[in-house]
Structures are given as structure tokens and as C-alpha cells.
């Protein structure tokens, strides 16, 4: 018996519903994991509004914006990939997934440039509370992007082996949901960190 195939005589549609319930529950967990950091953010921003304003100016806003665009685009390619898979357009689907992976790597590349820049300016996680939050939040998000890339690569391998069909594309859809979540977290992180009013 395997994790993705049917149990107890489930049809593929039922198996998909089961898997979706699983991933949604997992995302609820993830929300609370990030919730801890967002709580820290709220507490300390209310306590030290000036610190947050002055410190956030040291971030590279254009690069942050570029990364936002990159990640939103990757969400779009992911959605297109799932749609293509459901229509049985395998080549288009694998192309879309590959593009998503590429964009995700691009995101991490930009992040790398940003962090190196911060380090060279002497800004470390222990510098002050704002940068503690900045590094912890973008770091945890970065780990999720890495996990997402791994999941996407696995899906890509399965897709190339022809394991999916219009009837069965559960792993693609689940990975897609997870990827949208990672994207969504960034949509919150960007204004909170780069655009402190």
C-alpha cells in the first residue's frame, strides 16, 4: 500500500480529496509556524516603531520588489502547469514546472545577493530586533522555498516518466497548493519588512 495510491477501494477522485485534505491541514500547521514570527513582529513593531522605520531603510527595496515579481510569476507558471496537466498536455506542463523551478532558484539567488549585501554592511541576525526578525522570517521562508524546489523537482521527474494523466495528477496539485502558500507568505513578508510606513 502506498501513500498516494488508493486505500480501501478509493477512487482516484476520492484519493485526490483525501490528499487535498491532508495538504490543507498541513498548511494550517504552517500558518501557525509563521504565526509565531508574525506575533513577534507585531509585538516589537508596536513597541519600537522608530527602530522599524529607520532600520528597514537599510534593506534593498528594489531587489525585494524584483523577488516579489519573480515569486508571483512562479505561482502563475505553477497554476498553468497544473491546468496543462489536467488537459493532458504533458510537454507544456513539464515546461511550466521547469520554469517554476527556475524562478524559485532565481528568487533564492536574489536573496543570496541581498543577504551578502547585508552582511557586508555589518547587519547580522543579532544586530537588532528588526534584523533578527528580517533574517528569521526571510530565512524560514527561504527554507520553505528550498523545500518547494525539492518537491517540484520530484514532481518534474514523475511527470517526465509519464506518471500523470488528466485523471491522476494529485502530486502536482498538492505541490501547487504548497507553492502558492510559500508565495502567499512572501506577499505578507514583503510589505511588512520592506515597506514599513
Amino acid at each position: 500500500m502506498s501513500g498516494t495510491e488508493s486505500h480501501g477501494g478509493e477512487t482516484p477522485a476520492q484519493a485526490l480529496a483525501t490528499a487535498k485534505l491532508g495538504i490543507w491541514t498541513f498548511l494550517a500547521t504552517e500558518v501557525l509556524l509563521f504565526g509565531g514570527l508574525f506575533t513577534c513582529y507585531i509585538v516589537f513593531r508596536l513597541k519600537y516603531p522608530e527602530l522599524f522605520y529607520t532600520e528597514h531603510l537599510k534593506l534593498n527595496r528594489p531587489l525585494g520588489l524584483v523577488n516579489t515579481v519573480v515569486l508571483i510569476t512562479s505561482s502563475l507558471t505553477m497554476a498553468l502547469g497544473i491546468a496543462a496537466m489536467k488537459q493532458g498536455l504533458r510537454r507544456r506542463a513539464t515546461a511550466c514546472i521547469s520554469l517554476t523551478i527556475l524562478l524559485a532558484c532565481g528568487f533564492l539567488g536574489v536573496k543570496y545577493v541581498e543577504w551578502s549585501e547585508d552582511f557586508s554592511h555589518g547587519l547580522y541576525p543579532g544586530t537588532n530586533l528588526f534584523f533578527s526578525l528580517y533574517f528569521m522570517m526571510t530565512g524560514l521562508h527561504g527554507i520553505h522555498v528550498v523545500a518547494g524546489i525539492c518537491a517540484l523537482c520530484w514532481v518534474l521527474v514523475l511527470a517526465r516518466r509519464g506518471r500523470f494523466s488528466p485523471e491522476y495528477s494529485t502530486p502536482v496539485e498538492i505541490t501547487g497548493l504548497y507553492w502558492h502558500f510559500v508565495d502567499l507568505v512572501w506577499i505578507y513578508l514583503f510589505p511588512l519588512l520592506y515597506l514599513v510606513g
Binding site: 516589537f44 547580522y124 543579532g126 537588532n128 533578527s132
Partner: peptide, 11 residues
């Protein structure tokens, strides 16, 4: 890393 969320000396 010396992150100071719980450390009063760091705010």
C-alpha cells in the same frame, strides 16, 4: 546568532 526576542538586554 544572538537574536534577542526573549532577551531584555536587546529589547
Amino acid at each position: 546568532f544572538g537574536v534577542g526576542f526573549f532577551d531584555p538586554a536587546k529589547g
